[in-house]
Amino acid sequence: MAAHHAPTMAVPTDAQLIQAQADLWRHSLCYFTPMALRCAVQLGIPTAIHRLGGTASLSDLVAALSLPPSKTPYLSRIMRLLVTSGVMASHEEGVYSLLPLSYLLVDGISIDGEASQVAIVLAATSRHYLEAALGLSDWFKKDVAPPLPAPFEDVHGATILEESMALLDPESDKVIHEAVAAHDNMGIGTILRECHDLFKGLESLTDCCGGDGTTARAIVQAFPHIKCHVLDLPKVIERAPRGDGSVNYVAGDLFHSIPAAQAVMLKLVLHFWSDEDCINILSHCKKAIPSREAGGKLIIIDIVVDPSSSGQILETQLLMDVAMLVCTRGRQRDENDWRSIFTKAGFSDYKIVKKLGARGVIEVYP
Rank of each mutant, 00 (worst) to 15 (best):
V121M: 02
V121A: 04
V121S: 03
L122Y: 13
L122A: 07
L122N: 07
L122M: 15
A123P: 00
A123D: 15
T125K: 01
T125S: 13
T125D: 06
T125A: 12
R127K: 14
R127F: 15
R127L: 15
H128F: 15
Y129R: 05
Y129S: 08
Y129A: 10
Y129C: 03
Y129T: 08
L130H: 07
L130P: 04
E131Y: 05
E131G: 04
E131N: 08
E131S: 11
E131L: 10
A132R: 03
A132V: 02
A133R: 02
A133P: 00
A133M: 00
A133T: 04
L134H: 03
L134E: 00
G135E: 01
G135V: 00
G135I: 01
G135Q: 03
G135T: 07
L136A: 01
S137A: 07
S137G: 00
S137Y: 00
D138K: 10
D138Y: 01
D138M: 03
W139Y: 08
K141Y: 02
K141S: 13
K142H: 10
K142T: 14
K142N: 11
K142S: 10
K142M: 12
V144D: 03
V144P: 02
V144A: 10
A145E: 11
A145S: 12
A145Q: 12
A145M: 10
P147S: 05
P147C: 05
P147N: 02
P147I: 06
L148N: 06
L148M: 11
L148E: 07
L148S: 09
L148I: 12
L148Y: 08
L148W: 05
L148D: 02
P149V: 09
A150Q: 01
P151G: 13
P151W: 09
F152Q: 03
F152N: 10
F152P: 03
E153L: 12
D154F: 00
H156D: 03
H156G: 03
H156A: 03
G157Y: 00
G157I: 02
A158R: 09
A158H: 07
A158W: 06
T159I: 11
T159G: 04
I160L: 08
I160T: 04
I160Q: 02
L161G: 12
L161Y: 13
S164T: 07
S164C: 04
S164H: 02
M165Q: 14
M165C: 10
M165G: 08
M165H: 13
M165A: 15
A166V: 09
A166G: 11
A166Q: 08
L167W: 01
L167S: 04
L168C: 07
L168D: 04
L168T: 06
L168N: 05
L168W: 05
D169W: 11
D169C: 15
P170M: 12
P170W: 06
P170E: 05
P170D: 05
P170I: 14
E171A: 15
E171W: 00
S172I: 13
S172M: 13
S172N: 10
D173P: 01
D173A: 15
D173K: 00
V175I: 15
V175G: 09
V175M: 14
V175W: 13
I176W: 04
H177L: 12
E178L: 11
E178C: 09
A179L: 10
A179G: 13
